[in-house]
Amino acid sequence: MTLITSKRHRGAHDAGPSGWFVAPALVFFVIFAVVPLVGVIALSLANWNGIGAITWAGFANWAKVLVDPVTGNALVVTAKIMVFSYIVQAPISILLGAFVAGKQRYRALLAVFYFIPLLLSSAAVAIAFKALLDPNFGLGAGLGIPALAQDWLGNPDLVLFVVIFVIAWQFVPFHTLIYQGAVRQIPASMYEAARLDGAGTIAQFFHITLPQLKYTIITSSTLMVVGSLTYFDLIFILTAGGPGYSTRLLPLHMYLTGFRSNDMGAAAALGVILVVIGLLLALMLQRLGGKDRSANQTEGA
């Protein structure tokens, strides 16, 4: 079999490295990711308060979770945050990426500051914004503009937009960095040709930069959309899901159900829903991206 596969074969047998090289990674992944994945399905069929005995519950958790209006609300909040934060983040990241890809000195200097949020933990970001958005001792009071001295985190009509803004503040830098790298890989000759044809900056952006970024846009979008299922810590500290249930997105709802209300069975059922959404999204984006991505990977190198 090995003889057939290697064409430039010069006498040595190469069966490829043994599967044992994969074993350590596989063991870790199976024990702490695959087993929990099965476990979350099993626990969704059980009663457990986190400490005591585990008993069979059948589909009681599912019946409870699926009719609970809080679950429906959590799904809506999750979808809103996913869609709005994508609409905000994607254009800003692309524009900033193209901006800092330029060679001007001042842009390089600005970029140094742009990337600072990359270093901060969600906990740090949430705590900083909580203080900054305080109506009495924060931004609004500092600038003396009453419109900015709102109870940003206590107003159910505003809080979702605040959360989306803070998410953008934290995650745009990473995507900017991805786009910066991608824009720099676009051959300069393409821009020269466009300039000779009289294309302005804006025309160059839409006819060269944007089409050339196609695959990067897919990668970045996948990370953004799937990533929005993980904005747990930021929102947990910033609003704890409140006021009321207005920012209680699915992962947070699951955590609070399991570890605050001690209903691990119901939390596991919510976990299953989360897994299914994650898989569906990834599958959908994969379809959207098409199968030519491997071809692009060598081209861009």
Binding site: Y255, L274, G278
Partner: peptide
């Protein structure tokens, strides 16, 4: 594609 959060209950277990 698996969000870590989803498996936190069995991991805790």
């Amino acid at each position: 594609a698996i969000p870590i959060q989803a498996t936190i209950v069995p991991i805790y277990f």
